[in-house]
Design a protein around this nucleic acid. Structure first.
Lengths: 131, 131
DNA sequence: TTCCTTGCAAATCGTTTGCATAATG
DNA sequence: CATTATGCAAACGATTTGCAAGGAA
């Protein structure tokens, strides 16, 4: 559908995301890449993030803070969002796909996916608030 | 904290939400109430929805379609979002709170909540697409 | 040369906010 | 009367888009 041509901006955006585990926003990507691409435009960042997400090369996380976060780790895993500092952290946890079966029991449609975010206070915030 | 005064707009907004099971957006609330309140303003709708959500009288649902949906049913339950028609449907399903325990097992912070949305094709869309 | 991609700026969309006025307690 | 709530419009932040120019195939 889309013959897709190479662009060094897109490559840089994907490479950058792969180096990060903190799930940056479009703006963070933009600002981090500006030193290397002085006339990079925010529009290009948004366009490529959307494209990469559509291709399944990255994940778009709608964590509920108003701005989308992105993750180059597309393997199935879950995220935790700290209610204090807002950081988005990967969770290493067992499979919970059975919740789809539970959800589908009294439902007359097809469930083929779910999105789950966990909330609370992260380790760092727990420590720093030992008041 | 907030001495809260009565307003017929707020009452109408809450009453309206209670009559609906389809989780309207702010704009839907606004348009549905306009016949009764010709000079109701969208700002008032947003202000009251935010207020009611803060008070815990309604739920704000961030289903991922860019606009918030609201639900006057504040009892614990889950939602399904149809990927075809976008409708937001209540699910009657058993408790899955154990996913928080599973998530917390290898995590050094405190997990005190989760948000889960199920996706797929709703009953109506399944029927209408029996191609 | 074709047409995808970029940079830039303007436009959109959902939502929030400032302010003068109206309504509540 | 003290204050909260409203309507209106302007302001906002995140994201998208139109367009002319640049770069890949």
């Amino acid at each position: 559908m889309a013959p897709l041509k190479y662009s060094k901006q897109r490559e840089a955006i994907l490479d950058f995301l792969k180096t990060r585990k903190d799930h940056p926003t479009a703006d963070m990507v933009y600002n981090s890449l500006r030193p290397d691409f002085p006339n990079l435009s925010l529009g290009t960042v948004y366009r490529n993030l959307a494209l990469l997400a559509d291709l399944g090369e990255i994940l778009r996380l709608r964590v509920g803070d108003g701005t989308d976060h992105f993750d180059a780790d597309v393997s199935p895993h879950y995220h935790f969002i700290c209610s204090e500092c807002g950081s988005v952290i990967d969770l290493e946890m067992g499979n919970i796909d059975e919740i789809e079966d539970i959800a589908g029991m009294n439902f007359d449609g097809q469930i083929c996916g779910h999105v789950t975010y966990f909330y609370g206070k992260c380790g760092a915030c727990c420590k720093s608030s030992m008041s």
